[in-house]
Each structure stands twice: as structure tokens, then as C-alpha cells.
Nucleic acid binder design. Structure first.
Length: 315
DNA sequence: AACTCATGCAACCGCGGCCGA
DNA sequence: CTCGGCCGCGGTTGCATGAGT
């Protein structure tokens, strides 16, 4: 493939944006919108390529960007979302209002990755460095991995939907929308926008709890004792399978999972971690139980609270 | 004070996808 | 269907700055 460079200053030294350049770019966009990026520099009187201008605007000048230190909650969100979504920074960014993908990526690479490594957790797989599972644990981990894969797909789709909604809110996209107003109106998203994943994550949590209790000699078998669910495990599996399917234009049902190549080892890793911990420390399972239960609740809360909706702040 | 090294992050590159001609 | 332009994304680079010696 390959493309010709978009600007003539390729190979030259990087040039930091000056306050004057920022001012020019800001003033131009505020007055005219960015329009076509390649055409913008000439119109705005900037000796930059369009790509550079776009980057400067999206990562720095946009008025709705939050800069500065990441809060503890944001850090947790990044770690958890990275575990689910991998290096899909833009998707992660849709769940962190006012943070740019570049900002998150930099923060991950310079801070969080190192911190996880220090903790003995592989920042890529989110697995603890040493792992040894028995066959039963492997089975559950595989199931949860499958579930997590679906969840990754969903989060990604959600991110795409969010982007679409944002783009439709912009003036230029509105023009496109107006041009296409002969088309059937867009269906509003179902309200409330309760993420479907909630049940899946709940299922994950439930599956983990079940395993833990089994490991601990509990008599509880198939029922997932998750707070928001009364489905048994086979019901969950059915639900998950159905959620993983989608209708294409021909009305055929196909497995959307098959079309996704996603790196989502988080659940697996997390499960490994939890299961391993519980296996190794059955004697203090109560503590583990409480701690891990809280962790799952955190994830559920996170996804619940940060799922993009039309009410989400517009970037 | 001067130098080196490490770190953070802004800026850039190149690829893939989308869309219109 | 193909081609070319544009956009968005993830990975990488390199500058600025602070810490350490």
C-alpha cells in the first residue's frame, strides 16, 4: 500500500506549534469550522499540512478537552477498558469524557503500563505473570473469555455508534443528513440506553462466583447468584449466544463473533487471577470473595456509568 | 554550573477504511 | 468495480524538561 506524504515538510524536524499558530487555527475554526482539513492551512494562513492541523485541533485546541492529571477513577477506567478493548484508544476514549485517545495512549504507555508491570501483571494480556490452572478453571476461563470477546465487540460497536451520533451532531454532518433526508429517519436508540453488557458482565461475575464457591466445596451448582440476575447458567449462555448474533440486511442471522478479531483477554486474565487467588488462598476466601466481588461491581459500574449515550457530552 | 540520563507528551508517520467520482 | 482523496487510528519518534550526579 503506502501513501504519498501528505505534507511537504516530511523528513524535516518536528515543529512545535507556536501560540500564534494555535491562535490562527482556533480563530479560523471558530469562525468557519474546520471543513476540509487539507484545504484549511492555506485558508487559515498556516504553514502546516492539514493533517497536522487536524491533530493539533483534536488533541490540544478543542475547547472540550480536559487536560492535566488523570484521576484515580480515570486510571481505573483506563486499565479496565484496556483490558477489555486492548489498544483501541479511540474506543477507550469514548468512555472517558473529555480525554483524547492520544492523551490516554500516552498516559498508558508512560505510567499505567509500567505500574502494571511492577505489580507483576502483564500489561498486554492483563494476566499475572505466573499462571497454572486446573482443567476446570481452564474451562471456565475459556467461557468467560468467549463472553469477554462478545463484550469487546459490543463496546467497540458502542464506541462506533457514539462516534456516529457525534458526527451527526456536527454542522457538516447535519448538511449530509439534510441531503439524505429522503431516507428513512434514523431510529432513536432504545431508551434508556442500558448497556446490554451489564448482563454479560454480571454473568461473568456470576460464573466466577460459582467457580469460587465450587472450589470451596459449596453446594451451589448452576445458579448465578448475581444481584441483578435470576437466570441460570444455561440461560445465560443462551442469552449470550443470542446477543452475539445479529441480523444482516437479508434478515439472516449470523454470528457476529465470527467477524471480530479482538484481543480481549481481560476477562480471561482477570478470571485467571481471581481463580488462581481463590485456589491458592481458599482459607481466606471470605476476603478474596469480598475483594473480587467489589472488583466485578466496579467493572459493572464502570461500564454502566460510562457507556456512551446521546446524553453523553459531545466531543 | 554543567553535563547526562530519564521521563512525559506533543507531533508525526503510515496504514486501512470509507466514500464519492 | 476501480481509483483517488480524505479521515481516523495506532504506533513511533523526538523535543522539552526535570532529576541526578
Amino acid at each position: 500500500m503506502g501513501r504519498s506524504p501528505c505534507c511537504e515538510n516530511v523528513g524535516l524536524k518536528r515543529r512545535t506549534w507556536t501560540p500564534e499558530e494555535d491562535q490562527k487555527l482556533l480563530a479560523y475554526i471558530e469562525e468557519n469550522g474546520h471543513g476540509s482539513w487539507p484545504a484549511l492551512p492555506a485558508k487559515a494562513g498556516l504553514q502546516r499540512c492539514g493533517k497536522s492541523c487536524r491533530l493539533r485541533w483534536t488533541n490540544y485546541l478543542r475547547p472540550d478537552i480536559k487536560r492535566g492529571k488523570f484521576s484515580l477513577q480515570e486510571e481505573q477506567s483506563i486499565i479496565q477498558l484496556h483490558a477489555l478493548l486492548g489498544n483501541r484508544w479511540s474506543a477507550i476514549a469514548t468512555h472517558l469524557p473529555k480525554r483524547t485517545d492520544n492523551d490516554i495512549k500516552n498516559y498508558w504507555n508512560s505510567h499505567l503500563k509500567k505500574r502494571l508491570t511492577k505489580m507483576g501483571i502483564d500489561p498486554v494480556t492483563h494476566k499475572p505473570k505466573s499462571d497454572s490452572l486446573n482443567p476446570g478453571q481452564v474451562k471456565v476461563a475459556a467461557t468467560l473469555s468467549h463472553i469477554a470477546q462478545w463484550e469487546s465487540t459490543r463496546l467497540e460497536a458502542e464506541a462506533r455508534e457514539s462516534t456516529l451520533l457525534r458526527s451527526f451532531s456536527s454542522s457538516s454532518a447535519q448538511l449530509v443528513l439534510n441531503k439524505a433526508n429522503a431516507l428513512p429517519p434514523l431510529q432513536p436508540p432504545p431508551l434508556p440506553l442500558q448497556p446490554l453488557c451489564l448482563d454479560v458482565l454480571t454473568a461473568c461475575k456470576g460464573a466466577w462466583l460459582t467457580t469460587l464457591l465450587k472450589e470451596n466445596g459449596s453446594t451451589i451448582t448452576g445458579t448465578l447468584e448475581a444481584p441483578t440476575s435470576t437466570l441460570n447458567f444455561s440461560d445465560k449462555q443462551l442469552l449470550i449466544r443470542n446477543l452475539g448474533k445479529s441480523n444482516n440486511n437479508n434478515g439472516e442471522v449470523k454470528e457476529s463473533m465470527d467477524n471480530t478479531v479482538l484481543v480481549s483477554n481481560f476477562m480471561e486474565g482477570l478470571t485467571d487471577l481471581f481463580i488462581e487467588n481463590s485456589h491458592d488462598h481458599l482459607e481466606h476466601d471470605l476476603n478474596d470473595f469480598e475483594e473480587n466481588n467489589n472488583y466485578w461491581n466496579n467493572i459493572l459500574n464502570l461500564v454502566n456509568s460510562t457507556s456512551p449515550s446521546i446524553d453523553s457530552p459531545v466531543f
